[in-house]
């Protein structure tokens, strides 16, 4: 097994005196795209924030290449790990290029002062998400899907080996979902990607590994065929689903909601 680039051990997180994550142990290896699934309120977003070092754990630790992610120097952490929050917004009508260039802040550059390397990273990120030609458009005039892609490009432009993305394709149409998941999977080759998703069929298709969160704990973790079983889906989501292998891929068909 490859050495873990990102490791979670005994992690519990409390928010407003309520336990949101309990005793989480996970490890994420180089080259893998991990998709985190789970019903609403299972703690997916909190897990993403904890991986990014943005919440203080009640117990346990998240280690990035052996270092406690909360104890890392901020800029160094920003260069090692990019975080894409859920429902990200852009406050001002900044041109798309400047939004993406904000990804260079951990490198000590800002939209007004990019070096050649920064400019290349920004251009590559804009091209990767398919926003070429919209560089000068004010971000507030983008459609929901375009805005989500601009924010993903911002995360890509940091060139951090680790990308933590909370629902990166939720706002996208099917074609862009496929294109962006391809980008993420390619990105995982040189580092790792952890993404939250709700679309189980898409998750099955793109994930190397999956994590199912249920009741603030890890209910299952491993390759998609081990996590996406009818029994797991019934217990965690309260749905009846059939899971089958077809043409080398896993196909998930959701039949109905179970009466709980």
């Amino acid at each position: 097994m490859t050495a873990a680039l990102l490791e979670v051990s005994g992690l519990s997180v409390h928010l407003r005196a309520r336990e949101v994550l309990s005793e989480i142990d996970l490890s994420f290896a180089q080259g893998e795209m991990t998709v985190v699934i789970g019903p609403n309120g299972a703690g997916k977003t909190t897990l993403m924030r904890a991986l990014a070092g943005l919440v203080a754990p009640a117990r346990g630790v998240v280690r990035l290449q052996g270092q406690n992610v909360r104890a890392m120097e901020r800029m160094a952490r920003g260069r090692a790990l990019a975080y894409l929050p859920q429902n990200g917004s852009i406050a001002w009508p900044l041109p798309v290029r400047d939004v993406v260039a904000l990804g260079r802040l951990p490198h000590g550059a800002s939209p007004g002062s990019l070096d050649d390397r920064g400019r290349e990273a920004v251009a590559a990120a804009i091209a990767a998400v398919g926003l070429r030609g919209l560089e000068d458009r004010p971000a507030t005039q983008l459609s929901g899907g375009e805005r989500a892609r601009a924010l993903l490009a911002r995360a890509l432009a940091t060139e951090a080996p680790i990308l933590i993305a909370d629902e990166p394709v939720a706002a996208l149409d099917p074609r862009h979902q496929l294109l962006i998941l391809d980008v993420l999977r390619t990105r995982a080759r040189d580092g790792l990607v952890v993404a939250v998703m709700h679309d189980l069929a898409l998750a099955a298709r793109f994930a190397h590994r999956m994590v199912l969160l249920h009741g603030h704990r890890v209910a299952a973790a491993g390759p998609p065929q081990e996590v996406l079983t009818a029994a797991h889906l019934a217990a965690a989501f309260g749905i009846e689903a059939t899971v089958a292998y077809r043409e080398g891929g896993l196909e998930v068909a959701i039949r109905r909601a179970l009466q709980l």
């Binding site: 901020r74 852009i90 900044l94 990804g103 800002s110």
Partner: peptide
């Protein structure tokens, strides 16, 4: 200055970009 620039993306994104 830099912190305000990063805050265009919200507090969490700013924090993840190395801003206190």
């Amino acid at each position: 200055r830099t912190g305000l620039q990063a805050l265009s993306l919200g507090e969490e994104a700013a924090e993840s970009l190395g801003v206190d």
